[in-house]
Each structure stands twice: as structure tokens, then as C-alpha cells.
Amino acid sequence: MAAAVTNTTAGTDWGKADFEAIYNCPDPRRYFTTLQPLDYQIPHHGQAVFRAVAETLQRRRGDRPPLNVVDLCCSYGVNAALLNHRLSLADLYGRYTAARPETPTPHQLAEDDRTFFATRRHAEAFRVTGVDAAGHAVDYARSVGLLDHGFAENLELGEPSPALRGALAGTDLITVTGGVGYITARTFGRLLDCVSSPPWVAAFVLREVSYRPVSALLARAGLVTEKLTTRTFRQRRFADGDERRSALEALAGRGLSITGKESDGFYHADLYLSRPAADVAACPMAELLPD
């Protein structure tokens, strides 16, 4: 299936192609068949990073119960699938893009997925709460067991519901792969208002987007934000020439060179990790995430 690109989104200011139609379907098949030709890969990078961060944080927490992870812009639970299961992103592409003799309904696929994920779940899985404005996607991820809790709420537009506020209270780690730009410091502020102590925050952020407003907010909450300086991470290919030109213009406006990065035809993301100063001193980022 060819990538279904329409116009540029109103949710960004750098002319990113509009994939809104794939994010709120009854099941993930259209999402994966649309993004596979563009070599969408940021969840693959997130899998290694989030696992390393979560395992380090779990060790620092000692004998407490499994970490409470909140995945922002969780969509169909892709990050949760990769964090808590013996799976790769390639496995998910294969599952949802492969032709079948009979095409299952969304309900039938969900039934199959419940077994598929349950038989591949790590024995010591983390608890994952997903937050996304796309209700169908959140419902699917929750129904197949990828999310322990899922909330279809837009924290850019309103305060968290009482149920979400309760689920966020014990948050240890917040993760996000690419949602920053659609969500802003406003969402992070509303999340932090719900927690008893500041969680760690691991965020992949497209280079077209400034993370400064978010990191400033996190600093006021007592978190030190570091950026991984040794590399960037491919997100996906540019959908077309217009998208590429818009992205390069945005990068030029930020004074950033594209050499060895977006010059390869892909969006690139930076990785930011925010933690209390004592945790930064105890485990430097270079040790936590060796190149």
C-alpha cells in the first residue's frame, strides 16, 4: 500500500505531511502499511533506549514494584509492545502488513493479538499507561493487553480527568517518540501536576522542534535535561519533495546543519533525558546509554 499523504498539518509549523487518517483506526494495519514504505523506525530506536533507561531506573528504585511508565502519544501501543515483549519493530511490520488468505475483522485481529502479545511478554514487564487523543488507537492497545491503562485525552486542550490523574500519581518514567511539536510544555505541565515526585523523562524530539520550553518546565520541577550529543536517530523518510523542503527550511531557521543527518532523506530526532541531579551524578548519560 502506498503512503497515504494528503496536505501538510496544522499541528506543526514546518510543513510535515498529514498522516492524521492512520492514527485513529479500529486497528493498526493502516498505520503500519502506510509507514512501512517510508521506513518509519523511531520506535526501534526507542525500544533500546527506553529499555536501558527503565532497567536502570528500576535498579535505582530497589525492591519497589515494577516501574510505572507513561507513554505520551502512545497510538496503538507500539512503544509498549516493544518495551515489554520479545518483539522487534520488524516483527510488527510483518504482522500487520502481510497478506492473509482471509482478512480478519478488527475484532478478530484483536482476539489474535491478545494471544500473540501474551505469549511474548517479558516475565518482568513494566506497567504502561498510554495517553493519546486518538480514542480508537488507545482502545485497541488497551484491549490487546499492551497498555495497563489507556486514556484518550488531549492535555493540550484540557486538564486530565480524575481517572487519568489517579493513574499518573505514581509515574516513574515518561516516554515519547516524536510527539513533541504536537504536544508542548502545556501537556508536560499538566502531567507533572499529577505526580508526587518528578519522574524521569526520555523524549525523542525531531530536530525541527525546540525542546527548550519543555526542558525549562522540567527544570522548574527539579529535573536536569541532557541531550545525547554523539548521534541523532532517524525517524522516517521524507514523504515527498515539499515535505523535505519545508523541513530543511525549518532546520536552516534554527541554524542547524543537515550534513550527515537530514541530507540522507530522513527526519532525524535528538534524544533528551531528564532526571533529578542526584541521578545524573550517580549514572552519567554516557554510562547509561553507551554509544
Rank of each mutant, 00 (worst) to 15 (best):
N7D: 11
N7Y: 05
T9C: 07
G11I: 12
T12I: 00
A17N: 06
D18N: 15
A21M: 09
C25F: 00
C25E: 15
D27T: 06
R29N: 01
R29A: 04
R29C: 05
T33W: 03
T34G: 04
T34K: 02
T34L: 05
L35T: 12
L35K: 10
Q36T: 12
P37L: 11
P37G: 08
P37A: 13
Y40M: 12
I42S: 02
I42C: 00
P43D: 05
H44F: 11
H44I: 00
H45K: 03
Q47F: 06
V49A: 13
E55T: 07
L57I: 07
Q58I: 02
P65S: 07
D71K: 04
C74P: 01
S75T: 09
A80C: 10
H85N: 14
A99N: 11
A99Y: 10
R100I: 04
R100L: 15
P101C: 03
T105P: 09
Q108Y: 08
Q108W: 05
T119R: 13
R120G: 01
H122R: 13
V128Y: 01
T129C: 14
D132H: 04
G135R: 11
A137V: 06
D139A: 15
D139H: 13
L146I: 00
L146E: 06
L146C: 09
D148I: 03
H149A: 14
H149S: 14
G150F: 06
E156G: 13
L157F: 03
L168R: 04
L168C: 09
A169L: 12
A169E: 14
D172G: 11
L173A: 10
I174N: 02
Y182I: 03
R186Q: 11
F188L: 11
G189A: 09
S197A: 14
V201C: 15
R207A: 04
V209G: 00
V209I: 15
P213H: 07
A216F: 01
A216I: 01
L218C: 07
R220F: 02
G222H: 12
E226Q: 15
K227L: 03
L228A: 13
T230S: 08
R231K: 14
F233D: 00
Q235G: 02
R245A: 15
E249D: 10
G253A: 13
G253E: 07
I258D: 01
T259L: 10
T259I: 05
T259W: 02
E262R: 06
S263R: 06
H268D: 08
A269N: 07
Y272Q: 00
C283R: 15
C283Q: 15
